[in-house]
Simulated scan of single mutants.
Amino acid sequence: MEFHVENMTCGGCARGVTRAIQSVDADAQVLTDPPKRSVKVETTATQQQVIKALTEAGFPPR
């Protein structure tokens, strides 16, 4: 799955996004691109779980 995270602007934000996703699936593969504000995720978690975790962490995806 792929998301656009408008307020992911730096490496620190990218780490926060990764931590949020891995809080619902510790084995998730997360590829972040802060300049493009994109996140690609390979996970066994549902899309809703990932969206909820990101939103709660302050990085609401589109």
Rank of each mutant, 00 (worst) to 15 (best):
Asn7Trp: 09
Gln22Phe: 09
Met1Leu: 15
Phe3Ala: 12
Ala14Arg: 04
Phe3His: 12
Met1Tyr: 15
Ala14Lys: 05
Gly11Lys: 07
Ala20Arg: 02
Lys36Met: 15
Thr44Lys: 14
Gln48Pro: 00
Asp33Ser: 06
Glu2Lys: 15
Ala28Met: 06
Lys40Ile: 14
Thr18Ser: 12
Gly58His: 09
Ala28Pro: 01
Val39Asp: 04
Met8Ile: 10
Arg37Lys: 14
His4Thr: 15
Ala57Trp: 01
Thr46Gly: 14
Leu31Gln: 12
Glu2Arg: 14
Leu54Ile: 07
Asp25Trp: 07
Gly16Ser: 08
Arg15Thr: 06
Ile51Ala: 08
Leu31Ser: 14
Gln22Met: 06
Arg15Cys: 02
Ala20Tyr: 01
Gly12His: 15
Arg15Asp: 06
Gly58Glu: 01
Thr43Lys: 07
Arg62Trp: 10
Arg19His: 09
Arg15Met: 12
Pro35Gln: 03
Phe3Thr: 07
Val17Ile: 08
Arg19Leu: 11
Gly16Asn: 11
Thr18Gln: 12
Ala28Asn: 07
Val41Lys: 03
Arg62Gln: 15
Glu42Val: 13
Arg62Leu: 14
Ala28Gln: 01
Gly16Trp: 09
Glu56Thr: 08
Pro60Phe: 07
Ala53Met: 01
Lys36Val: 01
Val39Tyr: 03
Ala53Asp: 04
Val17Asn: 01
Ser38Cys: 01
Ala57Leu: 04
Met8Trp: 06
Val39Arg: 04
Lys52Trp: 02
Pro61Phe: 02
Ala45Leu: 06
Arg37Ala: 05
Val39Leu: 05
Gly11Ala: 13
Asn7Leu: 12
Ser23Val: 09
Asp33Asn: 11
Ala20His: 03
Arg15Val: 05
Gly11Trp: 11
Thr55Tyr: 06
Ile51His: 03
Glu6Met: 13
Gln22Gly: 07
Phe59Leu: 10
Phe59Ser: 02
Gln49His: 02
Val17Tyr: 06
Thr43Tyr: 01
Asp33Lys: 00
Cys10Ser: 11
Val50Asp: 03
Gln47Ser: 02
Pro61Met: 09
Thr18Asp: 09
Gln29His: 07
Cys13Gly: 05
Val5Pro: 03
Val41Thr: 06
Asp25Lys: 04
Val24Glu: 07
Ala28His: 02
Arg37Thr: 00
Val50Lys: 02
Gly12Lys: 05
Val41Ser: 03
Arg19Met: 10
Cys10Phe: 11
Cys10Met: 12
Val41Ile: 13
Pro61Tyr: 02
Glu42Asn: 13
Pro60Thr: 09
Ala14Ser: 13
Ala26Trp: 00
Val39Trp: 03
Val39Ala: 10
Leu31Asp: 11
Lys40Arg: 14
Asp33Glu: 09
Ala57Val: 03
Ser38Tyr: 08
Gly58Ala: 09
Met8Val: 12
Ala14Pro: 07
Arg62His: 12
Asp27His: 13
Arg37Tyr: 01
Gln22Pro: 01
Gln48Trp: 00
Ala20Phe: 03
